[in-house]
Amino acid sequence: MTLSVRTIAGGFVYPECPRWHDGQLWFADQHDGLVHVLDAAGIRCDSFAVPGGPSGMGWLPDGDLLVVSMNDRKLFRRLGDGKLVLHADLAGVHPFHSNDMVVDGEGRAYVGNIGFDFYAGQPPAPTVLAAVAPDGSISVAADDLMCPNGAVISPDGRTLVIAESMAARLTAFDMSADGSLSNRRLFAAIDGHVPDGICLDSEGHIWAASPYEKMVLRISPAGEIVERVVIPDANPYACMLGGADGRDLYICIAPHHDPEMTVKLRGGRIDVVRAPASGAGRP
């Protein structure tokens, strides 16, 4: 199947971590220090700054937004009046930049991190997935992960799947009622790819951005790649299903990942493609 891609918004630095919430597309322009909110057609509705550069986002049951500060390794809570307050300081468990996250129905946040100095050329190193309770207390949900990145939670709240970017795989866990993770297992091995942001559809497939191969993959529950959306001129870093019927796949794209280069180029954009199935689960 050939999926037709179109651009709906551009002029960004490095868009990442898209979320569909209350009929709007939210995403982090990481290297510009801003969160942007667009309507379904790509018209900007709001923007706000996040110290340390925004990354993963999710909402608490009371409607407050949680947003990761990537460089500062903190998790902020955005109150109804727009004020940002510290929700959790992740520096004690994250050895390097905090990254994407997913928030469950109880308000527990599962926050990944890069685990090594990527820009300095350090070799990849195993790290942890942090769990932040609704009261802001921090624990380690899982360890020995190779750059835990985009994550999804199944609609029944019983399974978490996370992209291990530096291991070319998606890894699944069972989720208990208290939020603890167990029964670690392989969801999909995707050799030759560096999976970044991911989202889940109503047929149990996971869409995964593969930036260095310039495509977005649709991966079946059996772990097989069944669709590819090719972005020939730039790198797709994350994706999210949304729109009126949940079948618009919004893709965060930039020409490069280097902060200095992306600021100079300002070539980040949001593309959209019609997907075979609607979005499901979280984020």
Rank of each mutant, 00 (worst) to 15 (best):
A125D: 06
M101Q: 15
L25N: 09
R19S: 11
V68L: 05
D81F: 04
G115R: 14
G107P: 07
F76I: 01
L86W: 05
V93D: 06
F76K: 02
S69D: 03
A41S: 15
R73C: 15
A120V: 04
R108T: 11
S69I: 02
M70T: 13
H87I: 04
N113W: 06
Y110F: 12
L65S: 09
W26R: 07
L60Y: 03
G52M: 02
D89L: 00
Q122R: 12
D32Y: 05
C45W: 06
G112S: 12
D72N: 12
P124G: 01
M101P: 14
V35H: 13
Y14V: 01
A40P: 09
F116Y: 15
I114R: 05
R73A: 14
D39S: 05
C17Q: 08
R108W: 09
Y110T: 08
K83I: 00
A91N: 07
G92E: 09
N99C: 13
Q30E: 04
P51C: 10
Y14A: 09
G53V: 05
G53T: 02
P123W: 05
P123R: 11
P124C: 04
G107S: 04
R73M: 13
L86N: 05
W26M: 06
V50P: 10
D29G: 06
C45E: 15
P126G: 13
P95N: 13
L34N: 08
D62K: 07
L90H: 05
H94G: 01
G121V: 08
G92D: 09
P123E: 14
A120M: 01
A88N: 05
L25R: 07
D81G: 11
F27C: 01
V67S: 04
A40G: 13
L38S: 12
D39G: 11
S55F: 06
L38F: 14
Y119K: 08
Q24Y: 03
D62M: 01
L86E: 15
M57T: 08
W26N: 04
V111N: 12
P126A: 14
P95H: 09
H94D: 08
D39E: 09
